[in-house]
Design a protein around this nucleic acid. Structure first.
Lengths: 342, 342
DNA sequence: GTTAGATGCCAAAACGCTTTGGAGAGAAAA
DNA sequence: TTTTCTCTCCAAAGCGTTTTGGCATCTAAC
């Protein structure tokens, strides 16, 4: 069943049927209803390829997926992608997934846009003064950044969570609980989300007359193993921290392991707050000692970004170009007052 | 630059240029070379939407992504997808990623195919007598299964690794090393890969007069936490195992944690073999005690499946419809002889 | 020296949609 | 009554490929 057949069935022209379906004003309400009814009965679905050809829109959004060894994306990437897919499938949008080594990213993005196969790009894993942003701004292809860069004007479309605020809140809670030695197990130091989290942590500590010691600050990929090693290092210090912040529940997994191994009791001997991306496979409430977390749904971010990109391409609704999501600080059993005398 | 312009430039008809590009025989070798040269100079790239419309092929492959709570896919899914993307991008193929709750899978697959937006489907997370296979066979859309079902004829296209063989080999090695109590920390019991791994394990043990005790057999999602809990349970048994098999390095992560916590020494007090999907973030050689593994690259499987699907759609080369990849058993420090007297 | 079959090329018709540039009818304005 | 809008709708021209059906030209065979 194609448009021609449908229009013949209705005794209308293809033009009118097309306009009725695409919400153009110059079609009688009654006629539109007839068309809509016929669509429902016949199960007519417009041919996407023909639409793409006629409109010049590709109907797909591109994402370059960092893929080199030692990329910390894995766990979080899948979750984010599920969100993107959720939303995209509603509007019949495709993806072009372009794996690329991190050094090639700019070129890969440019090539992807130039290919004409995507009419929007999604950018993530932002670095300081990320060159991709200037490049994308010079093109006219819509894009949304997940996260934000630093050191350049923030006049580009982004969706970010308030990383600074999240870790400020978390560190402040720890300080208020009397902790005087706080450690941070963070993501890779070249990524801006990690930099902002450090900043938030330091700010809160400073306000309470505390410092983030160098030896209590770890940057690494967000894997269990790195979490374990960092925590292990911390615990061997002359003055070990009594509280630790983790940039992911994955890191927290390793940190908790090290804590257990040291024979310390989470929530009393040592406190821990992790950032929770709401990964279905790793729920903070399911830890043996449930984790206090700063929470923001990664999947939700994926959905939102897909929606914004599609709205942009289709000129549906005017959504805000810049969003900064607050995180929730959810207190569970892994935080408690600082042990006396420490 | 489109076909018309290019053909005018060359003083040829569109037909001839098109045929030259698509490798049809009825074009002079010299002419073809001229066309190819012109393409290189002008940077001409055929419009995919027009191609899709003209050929009726969608140029994209569909995948339904299980997305409900408690789905064990995450870590492994990202890695597999990178492989798919790697290969697809070479041929300018898109993806339609359709998240779906596991109960809806059959309907989602059917809908995806019916939408006409994909000309091949990729299936994974196989269960026993998986209904998706019969459904897909009834349609004429190409598909490849990652894994295999059980209890139904294996006359469908698949790529699987020899799970039975892998765990047979691993278990046999443990038996040969003198272990008499072997445990298994496996994936979800409804997935066929896990069932096959159990089978391989049991077979090897049986051949050495050993059994896989119920209390030494764990099925769960493949997360660190589940690995930890299972191992912890094992170690509290009256007769704890002296060796354990893990279905993923992610599970092994937790298992090793429990082993450490119990004060046991990996590789002497207790041996461990894990299946290694070659996840960049979790290398068995980077464990504190490097892990003995059965290895098979998940990304490689993704690449291969994409290649097979595309070859099928484009009728490029005749690739085998059924592949069973052997795994490598790589011995590292986590395996050793059974401790005396156990 | 004609015929048959390759060989190499082309004009034009799809493919199924959107969009342009009207056009007819009725209502409102002159 | 005529003119001018406003509503609705339509015919036809794209969009950029692939593919069909044919038409020359050249070679080999009779």
């Amino acid at each position: 069943m194609n448009l021609k057949q449908l229009s013949q069935l209705l005794g209308l022209s293809q033009t009118t049927v097309s306009r009725a379906l695409n919400g153009y004003p110059e079609v009688n309400a009654e006629t539109r209803q007839r068309v809509l009814d016929a669509v429902r009965e016949t199960g007519y679905r417009p041919n996407r390829a023909a639409q793409r050809l006629a409109t010049g829109r590709a109907g797909s959004i591109g994402l370059v997926m960092p893929t080199a060894d030692g990329i910390e994306s894995d766990v979080h990437f899948g979750e984010f992608l599920a969100g993107l897919g959720d939303e995209a499938v509603k509007h019949d949008f495709h993806f072009v997934i372009n794996p690329s080594h991190p050094e090639d990213e700019v070129a890969t993005c440019r090539r992807l846009v130039a290919s004409g196969n995507v009419d929007a790009l999604f950018l993530a894993y932002m670095r300081e003064k990320d060159p991709r942003i200037a490049m994308m701004k010079s093109l006219k292809t819509p894009f949304v950044v997940h996260g934000r860069s630093m050191g350049i004007a923030t006049d580009y479309p982004y969706l970010d969570i308030d990383n600074t605020g999240a870790f400020y809140d978390a560190a402040r809670l720890l300080a208020q609980l009397g902790h005087r030695h706080v450690a941070l197990i963070n993501g890779p130091s070249h990524l801006t989300f990690a930099i902002r989290r450090t900043k938030g942590t330091v700010r809160a500590l400073t306000e309470h007359g505390l410092v983030l010691r160098d030896e209590c600050n770890s940057n690494s990929q967000m894997t269990d193993e790195h979490g374990f090693r960092a925590m292990e290092r911390f615990l061997q210090l002359a003055t070990p921290p009594t509280a630790v912040l983790c940039s992911s529940t994955v890191l927290a997994l390793g940190a908790v392991r090290a804590i257990n191994q040291a024979g310390l009791k989470l929530g009393s001997d040592i406190s821990l707050i992790a950032h929770d991306d709401v990964l279905p496979m790793l729920k903070p409430e399911n830890f043996m000692v449930p984790l206090t977390t700063t929470r923001s749904s990664l999947r939700g971010a994926g959905q939102r970004i897909a929606r914004r990109l599609i709205a942009d391409i289709l000129q549906l609704e005017a959504l805000p170009q810049q969003e900064l999501w607050k995180t929730d600080l959810i207190v569970r059993a892994s935080t408690g007052p600082a042990p006396a005398g420490k």
